[in-house]
């Protein structure tokens, strides 16, 4: 897992809360900073890449550790 500036654990929360909370967290971060997002909602495998693509916040890394999905998302320029 690469370095990150902020961690957001949405374990137990279901669609669309992980996306909504990720959006809020990223809005409070500076361009280039990295968010470590932890999700248990299985739909996130498709939803987080879609969110990243549509909002211009690049998805740097995706992994699955002990049944949880871990994403590193970089805050893009507005």
């Amino acid at each position: 897992m690469s370095d990150f500036d902020k961690e957001l654990d949405t374990s137990g929360l279901n669609c669309p809360l992980p996306v909504l909370k990720a959006r809020k967290a990223l809005s409070e971060m500076a361009t280039g900073e990295k968010l470590h997002l932890i999700v248990t909602d299985a739909g996130a495998n498709q939803d987080i890449p879609a969110f990243s693509k549509m909002t211009g916040n690049p998805l740097i890394e995706t992994s699955e550790i002990e049944g949880k999905l871990h994403f590193i998302i970089e805050k893009g320029s507005e």
Binding site: C15, P16, V19, L20, A22, R23, A50, F51, M54, T55
Partner: peptide, 11 residues
């Protein structure tokens, strides 16, 4: 409400 809130998060 679910689609609207998500859509706003997607810009």
């Amino acid at each position: 409400f679910l689609l609207a809130s998500t859509a706003v998060a997607l810009g």
